[in-house]
Amino acid sequence: MNIPDNLRYRDSHEWVDYMNNPATCGISDHAQHELTEIVFVDLPKIGRVVKAGEAVCTVDSVKSANDIYAPVSGEIVAINEDLRNDPGLLNRDPYLQGWIFKIQVSNPSELETLLTPEAYRAHIS
C-alpha cells in the first residue's frame, strides 16, 4: 500500500499535503482500494468554510456512497474539476492527479492531530 512520507493522514483515510497553505487533500491509496471503482465525485463548493472532521463531499463507488471528511479546518479554495469527467483518477493516482480539494488552513496546529505515515500504516494494518 502506497503511503507517501510527506503527507499526514486522518483515521478516516483522507490525506493532506501540509507543506503549502492552502493544503491539498485527497483519499489514501488504501481508501481507493477499499472503495474500488469510483464512479462519481460530488465535489464541495469553493468558498465553503469547514471544520476538521466535517463531511465535505461524497465519493460514489459502485458499491456505496462514502463521505469524505475535512482533515483540518479552513476554507475550500480549489477543487479538482478533472474528477467530474474522470472520477477514476481517484483509483489510478490518488495522491497526485486524484487530489480532491485545497483548503486554506485556519488552524495549523490541527495538523498535529493527524496521523503520521507510520501511524497511518499501523492504523490500516
Binding site: V39, F40, D42, T58, V62, A65, R84, N85
Partner: peptide, 8 residues
C-alpha cells in the same frame, strides 16, 4: 441520462 451519482 447524464453524469450523476449512482441512484440508490
Amino acid at each position: 441520462t447524464g453524469t450523476c451519482p449512482p441512484p440508490r
